[in-house]
Design a protein around this nucleic acid. Structure first.
Lengths: 150, 150
DNA sequence: CCGAATTCGATTGTGCGCAACTCGATCGTG
DNA sequence: CACGATCGAGTTGCGCACAATCGAATTCGG
């Protein structure tokens, strides 16, 4: 019905708009570090876990090599990471922080607090929002919608 | 601190991942209609409100002309919309549905129900999630973070 | 072992998002 | 009315996302 199509903009569009708005919030902070938001996510994984294969980055960030390969190439050009093939499995590439990549961490520590303050939500609301979003992502990830089914 | 950087992936990453997961959920349904998700949003506005200027589409969808102009050109090539300058203000371009664009609406009516069913959330949870997302978007939209401020 | 299937990463091509810019139309002020 | 400022679209350039494909390395089944 027409009503369904009007209502449709409610949750899904809200999610789409919120995600872009938050990315915009990060932009000036990350510009100062010379990073984009996806690049920042990669750096977060490397800061937290150390050397990580491309496959593992893809698993943690839910991104594929078509996104990660050129992104990592740009981080390498920026002298923040290096890549090397694993001796144990020459198919795998492990991403390592450079000294510059490691030292960038200290300049990034103020980012999360600024962002969460700007959201205008309490930490309780943020936690509740996160829980719903994770549930949504998990439920949606296991669905394969068929356009011909009801 | 290091802890902050780990926590940072919590809400913001959840939002980023959920948004992409939901877009993936739409993809097979919209592929059957020959639309991308942003194109579908434009069609929703046109189905609901009729002829709309590019500026008004941008206001409703929070997209700028750099995104909308090429998107509308593709919808025009697909024969779903036409564009014409307003006589009253030659700067403005009004977007109109073609007959094919109007008739696509009936094939889109099943999309919202399929998507909301696949989210695995109750309608109450979806409403609560939407409310938080809208608040987040509004709070974030009025913030301009300065990398040099605390 | 050995050939087929799988895995990993990179590449290609398309379509956003968004900043920065251009250009013509319009508006505001003197 | 003149003219500088502003406005609305469009264009350009860059960096994702993601589907599809490729090639090399590895694993698996017979």
């Amino acid at each position: 019905m027409a009503d369904d199509l009007e209502l449709d903009r409610q949750v899904c569009f809200a999610l789409y708009a919120a995600s872009r708005a938050v990315t915009q919030l990060y932009r000036p902070l990350l510009d100062a570090l010379g990073l984009t938001y996806p690049q920042y996510l990669v750096m977060l994984v490397l800061w937290e876990h150390g050397p990580t294969t491309v496959k593992e980055l893809g698993r943690r960030l839910e991104l594929d090599s078509g996104t990660l390969s050129p992104l990592l190439k740009r981080l390498e050009t920026a002298n923040l990471v290096t890549r090397r093939r694993l001796a144990a499995d020459e198919r795998s590439v492990e991403v390592h922080l450079t000294d510059a990549g490691r030292s960038l961490r200290s300049r990034a520590t103020t980012v999360p607090r600024k962002v969460s303050a700007a959201t205008g939500l309490t930490s309780h609301e943020l936690r509740s929002l996160r829980r719903d979003l994770v549930r949504l992502t998990e439920a949606v990830g296991s669905s394969r919608l068929d356009p011909d089914q009801p």
